[in-house]
Each structure stands twice: as C-alpha cells, then as structure tokens.
C-alpha cells in the first residue's frame, strides 16, 4: 500500500530562497507506527533541507534495512533514493560519492544496521572521512524484526518484552570520534529545535558528519526500564550547546556574551554559533570531548548537541586526489587512451 499525499498547496505558503515550499521537500506518507521517533527525524530533515535551501535533486539518500532505513522514502521525494541491504549502506554511499562528488549524500541507518551487522562498514566509511551526513536513528532495538535488543542498548536497559541487557552498550558518538569523524553530534528525535540546526550544519560539512539521534521505538522499547524511551531520554538529556546556524553570505548579527559562545566556520563559509551550556566545553578538542562523553555516560546522562567538529576536514576525494569534476561526467574522450596508445603499448610487450 502506498500513500500519496494530497498535492493541494496553499498559494501563500512560505518559500525558501530557491522558491520551494517546505512541502516540496516531503516524501510519501510514512507507514511507521504512530509516534515512532523516526518520523520526527524525517520531519526535521525536511525542515532542515528547506531552510538550508538544498536542491533536492542534488541529494542522494541512502539507507540500509530497518524501520529507520525505510524513512528516506518519507522525505525529499525529488531526490534519488537507495534502500540497499542490511548494514551495507556505507559502502554503497562510498561508491556513489566516488562517482559524483557534487551531490550531497544523506545516509540513514538504524542502531542494528550500524552497530551490529554494519559495524565494519560504518567504521571504515568514518575513517575515510567520506563526505556524507550519516544519521543513526537510535532506538536501542531492532524495530523491524520486532524488538530484539541492539548493540546500543545500555547495560541494564530492558525493552518491553525483554530482560535487562547484560552487555555494554556501544556509544556510537565515542566510536565515531575515535575513528576520525570530523563532525560528531547527538540529538533526540523529540528536540527539533536542537536537531534541525544540527542537520543544517551537518549538510554543509565536508566530510563525515555523524549524528546519533535517540529515536524511541514506541512499539517495542518505550517502556519504563528502557533507557531509550521518551521519558527516560527527556529526564536524562544534557546539552553541551544549542546552535544557531548562519548560512553563508549572511552576517552574524547577534552579539553573544564572551565565553558562552563558540563560533565554528563550515567549509562553505557558513557559521555555527554554539551557545555553550558548559563554558569549558570546546568542540575542537578531541581528547576533552572524549573525556566528557565518558563522564556523562558514567553518570547516566545523555550528552547532546554538537560534540566535535574539525575545521580542517579532508574528505575522501581530497585524500585520493581525484579530479574536481564528478567522475560520472567524464566522457569517453577523457577516459579512453585510444588506439594509438594501445599500439605503442603492444610494442613494449614484444
């Protein structure tokens, strides 16, 4: 069954700089459970892409398998999408990115998709600093296969039908940081004020932009005793910062009090103004960020916001030294050395 949304548009709906309405950034109607955190993330992506004036057809959205991985159908209907195989979206995204460096890549994954079956690919896409916005819609369980614990389930947390998890939960942000991700953030599907600017900034980042979004599964893991349910998350959120995203060409007009704000410039000249909750938190200091992540998790708190950003990010194309134009636009004349070169080569093999 597919739901096509009503195409009726109010004539006076606000448009962005490209002349598109927000609805233009939507996808087909979601088939996820009502209240699923994943739908809020899709809505945040729609809003972020609209506000950041993204051209949808210049975006490729890719995913693995899972409820979370279904969501690329629910935003940016004018973008090509690819629902690949379980845990393997990073490799498909890597190949796609190699073929066309000019598109923007949005990778959507789940905690099962990334932290279990796809851990290897996640690790390596991260360390290559692939230019992609990589979102994990983290509900601590395998929604699509009916609620089994995932590897991000915290020790002692239990799902609706399950026993307390006896294993250490994987902190994907700590991991991404260690592996060389150049933009690391955590957020909560229920906090669009934090999430939308984070997505906007991540879209402008050149390199691996990782956002771990806690996204409760209302059907299998939203019960008391679960550390990924709405109530628990709300009660244990601790934000490092909130962001004002200032696009390129716009001036930073607001004055911020000394010490409470850190300005971070993105690759295209856009600026993130971080309103710091903790004055001493420095998003460019990797080892300090690492320590903070540990500290908060030991206290049972969920640290959110922009956790780490590397202004010197060099993406995979830069590491490989590929040409500036997308490889998929090169023509036969650019690529084929031709008959004469071959005859010469033959001569050397005689």
């Amino acid at each position: 069954m597919t739901f096509i949304k009503s195409t009726f548009r109010h004539p006076e709906l606000p448009t962005n700089e490209l002349g598109f309405t927000r609805q233009y950034y939507e996808g087909v109607l979601s088939t996820l459970c009502a209240g699923c955190g994943h739908d809020s993330i899709s809505a945040a992506i729609v809003m972020a892409a609209f506000e950041a004036n993204i051209e949808p057809h210049k975006v490729a959205k890719l995913s693995g398998i899972g409820c979370s991985s279904k969501t690329p159908a629910y935003f940016l209907v004018n973008s090509h999408g690819f629902n690949t195989v379980h845990g393997r979206m990073p490799s498909v995204a890597t190949g796609a990115n190699m073929a066309n460096r000019d598109l923007q890549y949005i990778g959507i994954s789940g905690d099962g998709d990334t932290a279990s079956i796809g851990m290897g690919q996640f690790v390596h896409a991260t360390r290559r600093n692939l230019n992609i916005l990589y979102i994990v819609e983290n509900n601590g369980c395998y929604g699509l296969t009916k609620g089994q614990d995932s590897a991000t389930a915290d020790r002692g947390s239990h799902s609706k039908k399950g026993a307390p998890s006896p294993y250490e939960g994987i902190d994907l942000c700590a991991l991404a940081l260690q592996l060389g991700a150049t933009f690391v953030a955590r957020s909560f599907s229920g906090d669009k004020h934090q999430l939308i600017p984070l997505i906007k900034a991540a879209l402008k980042h050149k390199g691996f932009a990782f956002i771990d979004v806690i996204s409760p599964c209302v059907t299998f893991n939203n019960n008391p005793g679960s550390t990924k349910g709405y109530e628990h998350v709300r009660d244990h959120l601790a934000a490092t910062n909130t962001i004002d995203f200032v696009p390129e060409r716009k001036e930073l007009t607001t004055e911020y009090a000394e010490g409470s704000t850190q300005q971070v410039t993105l690759h295209d000249g856009s600026v993130m103004a971080l309103h710091k909750v903790d004055k001493n938190y420095d998003v460019s200091n990797k080892s300090a960020v690492s320590m903070s992540l540990l500290d908060y998790s030991e206290r049972g708190e969920i640290l959110t916001g922009l956790l780490y950003h590397d202004e010197e990010s060099q993406d995979l194309h830069q590491s490989l030294g590929t040409t500036d134009v997308p490889l998929n636009t090169l023509k036969e004349s650019d690529l084929c050395p031709g008959g004469d070169a071959l005859n010469k080569l033959n001569q050397g093999l005689r």
């Binding site: 690819f82 393997r88 490889l327």
Partner: peptide, 15 residues
Amino acid sequence: LAAIGMVVGAMWNGA
C-alpha cells in the same frame, strides 16, 4: 562486501 557495495553505488550513480 564493501568492495561490491561500492561498485553498486558507483554504477547506480552513473560511473
């Protein structure tokens, strides 16, 4: 697995 995944991605994207 990743090697062929990359080929799938690149070919899908027209290279």
